[in-house]
Computed example of a mutant assay.
Amino acid sequence: MSTSPYLTLNVVDLTHETDDCVTIHLERADRQPIASQPGQFLTLIVPCEAGKRPARRSYSLSSTPHETPRLSVTVKRVPGGLVSNYLLDNVQVGQQLEVMAPMGNFTVQPNAAAARSLVLIGAGSGVTPLMSILKAVLHEEPQSQVLLVYGNRNEDSVIFKTQLQALEQQYAGRFQVEHVYSQPLGSGGAHQFKGRLNRTMLLRILEQRHALPPAQAEYYMCGPEGMMAEARAALDLLGVPAERIHRESFVASADSAEAAAGQPEGHGTVTADDDDAISARTVTIQYEGTDYQIEVRPDQTILEAALDQDIDLPYSCQAGLCTACRGKCHSGKVHLDEREGLSDSELKQGYVLVCVGHPLTNDVVIEID
C-alpha cells in the first residue's frame, strides 16, 4: 500500500527574519517526526484565491532532522507573487497548512566520522537550503569545517542574520560566514566584502582562505542563475572536479534539454528531442492502486490533463525541476519539455516528470511514485 504524499501540519511559530521574509515553523498535531534530509524542500498547498485550485509552491527547509518534530520553511516576499504574499500577509500561529512530504536531491548525508570542508555559496533567499545543510554538518560532524559565502544587497537584507552570528560563536574555528554586499550600509569589516557575488569576488574570497584547498572541498550553491553560473566559472578556474559541485535551482534553464538515448528494454522511451510531433493521445496513469485513462491534448501536459479530470496527482513546481510528479513510463514514448530535474540514469530507466511531459504514442502507461 502506498503512503500518501500529503500532510496536514500546524503552524506552531513564526520568525520574522527581515522586513520581507518570515520562517514558518510546522509540526504534526501528534508531534510525530517527519522524515527529511538536510537541504530538501517542502511543497505548500495554499488556497490563495477563492474558487480556484489551491496554488503549490516549493520552499526549501531551513530546519534539520535533529530539530524534529519541527519542519521550518523560510518564505521571502516576491513582488506580485501569489503564494509568498498570501503567506506573509495571512499565515498565523495555530492555523493548518497542507503540504507534501519533504523531497529533493540537493542534500548531504551527515557522518559523525567525516572530516571534510564544505563551501556553501548563496545569495538572497538561496541561503535557505544552505542553512539546513550547514546546521546539520556542524551539529553532526565535529571534525568538519564549513564556509558560507553569502551575497545580499546590504546588512538589513541578511536572512538568518542573528542565527548565523550565534552559530559562528558556537562553532568558532569550524564555521565562518563571508558576507558580500552590493550596496552596504556600513564601512565593512574583516568578513565583509563590497560588490557583487561574481567569479572575481568568489576567487578573491577563496584564495584568501589558504587553509582551504579549493579542489578538495565540497561545494553547494543556491541562488539566482547568474550567480550560480559565475560561481561555477570560478570553481572551474580553481580546478574543482564537477562531482564536488552541487546546485539547487527552481528556475528552468532554456538550454537544459538534452536527448536521452540508449534506453534499455523493459520500459517506455523518454526524450527531450523536438523531432516528434505532439498530438492528442490517450495515456494510462497508475496511481494509488487505480488506473486512469486520460485524453491529453497537444496544448496540455500530462499533469494538466489529469488535473482537469480531478485526478489529484502529486506535483509542485510545474517546471520539470522539483521531481514531485515523477513517474515511471512502463510503455510508449514521452516527450519532456524540460529534463533538468532528472538525472541521465533516471531518463534511461524510463522516469518522467508529468508536469512537462507529452505522450508521443497511444500506448503510454505511467506509474506515479
Rank of each mutant, 00 (worst) to 15 (best):
Y150P: 10
L42I: 09
A172C: 08
R28K: 13
G332K: 13
R281E: 12
P5R: 12
T282F: 06
P241R: 14
Y219T: 04
F160I: 11
L360P: 00
N105T: 05
I285D: 13
L120W: 01
Y150D: 12
E225P: 11
E225D: 14
Q216G: 04
C355L: 03
E340R: 10
E168A: 10
A115N: 12
Q318R: 14
V22H: 00
L203P: 00
V283K: 04
I311C: 08
S60M: 10
R244P: 09
A101L: 04
A233M: 08
A229T: 11
I311Y: 08
P224K: 07
Q109S: 15
T68F: 07
L360N: 02
A172D: 12
A114Q: 06
F41E: 05
Y6A: 11
H139F: 01
Q349V: 05
S63V: 03
G126V: 06
D273T: 15
R244D: 06
V158F: 05
C329N: 14
T64Y: 10
Y6K: 10
P65V: 06
D89L: 03
K52A: 15
L82E: 10
S253T: 09
I159R: 09
Y220E: 02
V99Q: 01
E265M: 13
L202E: 02
L167Q: 03
Y86S: 13
M201S: 06
D20A: 01
T282M: 12
A254T: 07
N154F: 02
T107K: 08
G195D: 10
G357P: 07
G173K: 08
G39Q: 09
V180W: 05
V137Q: 08
V93L: 08
N152R: 05
P47N: 05
R326S: 00
F175R: 13
S132Q: 03
R297C: 07
G289W: 15
A261I: 11
L71Y: 07
A280V: 08
Q95Y: 15
Q37P: 02
Q163I: 05
P110I: 00
C325M: 04
A261K: 12
N111C: 14
A190G: 13
T361L: 13
Q92G: 04
K52V: 15
R232L: 07
L134V: 01
S58M: 12
R244L: 06
R31Y: 08
M228T: 05
Q216H: 09
Q143T: 11
D312S: 14
E27K: 10
R31L: 15
G81D: 10
G289C: 14
Y86T: 12
F175C: 09
V73S: 07
H210P: 01
T361A: 15
S72F: 01
P102R: 02
P129T: 06
V296Y: 07
G39M: 13
I205M: 02
E178A: 12
E248N: 09
E230V: 01
L353D: 03
L164D: 02
I366H: 04
Y351E: 03
P213A: 09
S60P: 00
P129I: 01
E17M: 06
